[in-house]
Simulated assay, not measured.
Amino acid sequence: MNWKLFADLAELAGDKHVSVDVEDGATVEDALEALLADRPALEDRVLEDGELRSQINILRNGTNVLTQEEGLETDLEAGDELALFPPVSGG
């Protein structure tokens, strides 16, 4: 599964594009856990007390999974692209 990381999240992960291994039938949450597993600095930025920080957005094929009924339990399919965004500000 491929992740695109943006802004400081890419810096913390060491790359803008990160590939993780997940099993068939995996969910977005499984892919997130795989992403964070060996990246403690990224985990600290994305999670708070083991929960996803409210300002972090996760997109699956361009759609924010957090606004979908299944949320992080959204099933993944081969070829899905995941993106992790920090808070966006500016004007």
Rank of each mutant, 00 (worst) to 15 (best):
M1V: 07
N2W: 12
N2P: 12
N2E: 11
W3Y: 10
K4P: 06
K4Q: 13
K4C: 08
L5P: 06
L5Y: 11
A7W: 12
D8Q: 01
D8T: 10
D8W: 11
A10F: 00
E11Y: 06
L12S: 06
L12R: 10
A13E: 09
G14F: 08
D15C: 02
D15W: 07
H17V: 15
H17C: 04
H17A: 09
V18P: 06
V18F: 10
S19Y: 07
V20C: 08
V20E: 10
V20H: 14
V20L: 08
E23Y: 06
G25H: 11
G25F: 14
V28R: 15
V28Q: 13
D30G: 06
A31E: 04
L32F: 13
E33N: 13
E33L: 07
E33D: 15
A34K: 03
L35N: 12
L35S: 09
L35R: 09
L36N: 08
A37I: 00
D38Q: 08
R39C: 14
R39H: 14
P40W: 07
E43A: 07
E43S: 05
E43N: 13
E43Q: 15
D44T: 14
D44K: 11
D44M: 05
R45P: 13
R45D: 15
L47F: 06
G50E: 00
L52Y: 13
R53M: 11
R53P: 14
S54N: 07
S54C: 03
Q55A: 00
I56Q: 09
N57C: 08
I58L: 14
I58Q: 12
I58D: 10
L59A: 05
R60Q: 12
G62F: 04
T63D: 09
T63V: 09
N64V: 01
N64A: 05
V65L: 04
V65R: 02
V65I: 11
L66I: 07
T67I: 06
T67M: 02
Q68E: 15
Q68H: 03
E69G: 00
E70D: 08
E70C: 03
G71W: 08
G71I: 03
T74I: 03
L76G: 02
L76W: 04
A78W: 05
A78R: 06
A78F: 14
G79R: 10
G79C: 11
D80A: 09
L82P: 05
A83M: 01
A83E: 10
A83C: 05
F85E: 11
F85D: 04
P86S: 01
P87G: 06
V88L: 10
V88W: 04
V88E: 00
S89D: 01
S89K: 01
S89Q: 02
G90L: 07
G90K: 04
